[in-house]
């Protein structure tokens, strides 16, 4: 089930709770997300990095100051918490970077020198769909408590949803009606995504977007359509797609 908090974050960052939602471009959305997360989680700065199979694929947004150093260092050195998080498909919570020299011999001392004491990196992923990383840093050492961690994870979930849509140039103003569906985590949805990727010969990320688009077009809950896909009463073979 979708976390209510993730929905709130999306509404705030995409500004679609406003009476007249502005047409937002990607840059603005990412700047807002980075600014918002630093207010809600006790961290000094944040960055969102695009990731590709080859590694760091560019920085989407960073807050001012050391966050930029954090992203640039990882990009040039080819190592750091964000790359580890992406590679291992799990968050990297390093609450004392000064002691992490063995883990990242190039990154840790350089980042520490620029005032980064703790770093928390969250992969932006849905199973095999891997898009990027949300990096949070703080100028003092120490862990996030469980509520702060939950909040950071909800920002990562919101960022994943936005990134998936922006990557495929879905207009953000269409997101509102799909918000609850986009966060539905029922297992048939993931099974259906796998099935569609084979039927339509597309990547797993595009398969999820196809499923969501059809659910939206048909006005049906995502998991209900997912059930039909798993039961093969709905298929996504290119030749029998009458929806266009």
């Amino acid at each position: 089930m979708a976390s209510l908090r993730v929905r709130q974050i999306l509404l705030e960052v995409l500004a679609i709770d406003q009476p007249d939602p502005p047409g937002l471009d990607g840059d603005t959305v990412w700047r807002r997300l980075c600014a918002s997360v630093t207010l809600s989680v006790p961290v000094s700065g944040a960055g969102v990095a695009l990731m590709t199979a080859a590694g760091h694929g560019g920085t989407l947004a960073v807050t001012e100051g050391p966050a930029e150093v954090m992203e640039n260092l990882q990009r040039t050195l080819g190592e750091g918490p964000c790359l580890t998080a992406f590679h291992d498909r799990r968050p990297v919570l390093e609450h004392d970077l000064a002691r992490a020299g063995q883990r990242w011999p190039g990154f840790a001392p350089a980042a520490t020198a620029s005032g980064i004491a703790a770093i928390f990196a969250f992969p932006l992923q849905i199973g095999a769909i891997r898009l990027g990383v949300l990096d949070l840093y703080r100028d003092t050492a120490g862990p996030l408590d469980s509520l702060q961690l939950a909040e950071a994870l909800d920002y990562a979930a919101a960022a994943t949803t936005i990134l998936l849509d922006l990557q495929h140039e879905q207009p953000t103003d269409g997101l509102q009606s799909q918000l609850s569906d986009a966060l539905d985590n029922h297992r048939v949805i993931h099974q259906a995504t796998g099935i569609i990727s084979v039927q339509a010969s597309v990547g797993i990320d595009e398969a999820l977007l196809l499923l969501r688009a059809r659910a939206y077009a048909d006005g049906r809950p995502l998991h209900e359509l997912g059930q039909d896909v798993v039961a093969r009463t709905v298929t996504f073979h290119p030749e029998d797609d009458h929806h266009e």
């Binding site: 849905i126 199973g127 095999a128 297992r187 993931h190 259906a192 796998g194 569609i196 084979v198 797993i204």
Partner: peptide, 9 residues
């Protein structure tokens, strides 16, 4: 989630 996607594939 990854396993569910792969089950579908």
């Amino acid at each position: 989630i990854l396993i569910e996607q792969a089950k579908g594939v």
